[in-house]
Design a protein around this nucleic acid. Sequence first.
DNA 1: TTTCAACTGACAGATTCATGTCAGTTGGGT
DNA 2: ACCCAACTGACATGAATCTGTCAGTTGAAA
Lengths: 231, 231
Amino acid sequence: MRRTDRLFEIIQLFRGGRLLLGRDIAARLEVSLRTIYRDIETLVASGVPIEGERGVGYILRAPIFLPPLTLTHVELEALHLGMQIVRGSKDADLAEAATQLLLKIDAVLPDTSRVTNHLTGLSVYGFADSGPLIFLGAIRHAISTRMTLSIAYTRLDGTETSRTIRPLHVEYWGNAWTCTAWCNTRDDFRVFRIDRISDCKETGDIFSLTAGKTYADYLDGLPPIPEPAHG
Amino acid sequence: MRRTDRLFEIIQLFRGGRLLLGRDIAARLEVSLRTIYRDIETLVASGVPIEGERGVGYILRAPIFLPPLTLTHVELEALHLGMQIVRGSKDADLAEAATQLLLKIDAVLPDTSRVTNHLTGLSVYGFADSGPLIFLGAIRHAISTRMTLSIAYTRLDGTETSRTIRPLHVEYWGNAWTCTAWCNTRDDFRVFRIDRISDCKETGDIFSLTAGKTYADYLDGLPPIPEPAHG
DNA sequence: TTTCAACTGACAGATTCATGTCAGTTGGGT
DNA sequence: ACCCAACTGACATGAATCTGTCAGTTGAAA
């Protein structure tokens, strides 16, 4: 096995945020521990955020590895525009991540390719996602961890209701965010505007994706489906 | 010089979209022509879009080289969201670039990191940039090449006017695009809503960034400046 | 048909690289 | 004080890579 391949392999071993011991990596890849130390040194030197602690082991901070890419100028512009828009979003996690991503990319580009040089003068002021979206991040988190939520919701007519839901999907409509969920209270699918959710708590229950209650099932039940991101 | 460094150097030589001969690259890097052929083969094999034509030379299609990066899941999500939003934009160039970028990234991620796996259920329908923005691409192009434009503009009160402008900057306001320009007709800075531009032609004149007529000068002349992309 | 420059294959020598072994040090935790 | 596992340095050996040279082929354009 070539060294390059082994370096790649090592990154793969960290999937799932695992803590690894040098000794175990060495055994797994059938090389000596010394070689692993050298490999890790190489990886860190090329910017892979592996962190080691004496007496503990290694972890990889950012688990998605992007190999070298080449971009056109327009692609870099699109990337920059998109990240600026997301930075302006009300979802604090996403906004922060967008900032970090821009910084990473900028740090890595030579002066001559620096984002700002290729921006043909373009600024983004104030994202369009309106209203209080303080729960957007929590909901996205709940979707990925399948946490049942208990929400208070203000209907369009102003009346309040509280529901227990299994959040399935989030949609962005250009100026509003919605959450499609299985509503335990109504025993059917429901779509909620996130800016009208006035309270949101995790119940502690973890739901499983039961047949008939998934987002795919919801889509199946709809007549004609709008094409995402084409208009 | 290590080979890896030379490979990197070769990419740098292509800056500015230059057409290069293998012989010249060889001379510049003080290696044999055969070695350059081998280097180019290696680069192409690792995905760098260098194209060679017999009897002509080499060009690099996508001139921005992004070294390996590691991303967190949220960063990948932010990237995906941003690109989906840009894909929905009315600027055909940017939208297409965003699509290409998404495809590039998806092609390069291992199955386990594939964008769709990390999207905690998120769709983008219909970008908020409203109205006819058919000239957005043309204006961005004119900004980068410093082409003077002749535009027909419909004021908010409905009256028509035609102007000769030096486009300087484009701003995105969440639901509308504007272009800040030096207006030759009025001999002052003016801001135009791009969806209200009913015609747009290049005059053929290339302007230079004269002191007092740059975007920086425009910003200097403004009282308090809104912070870009923070809300 | 000639020219140009990209391309390909083979081969041998040089040199760099990678690796294991050994013998340490360091910092945190128990 | 002891253990653990990350770290570091040195060195020799062997493997892999890299390179130039030479002798071609190919496709396009003049």
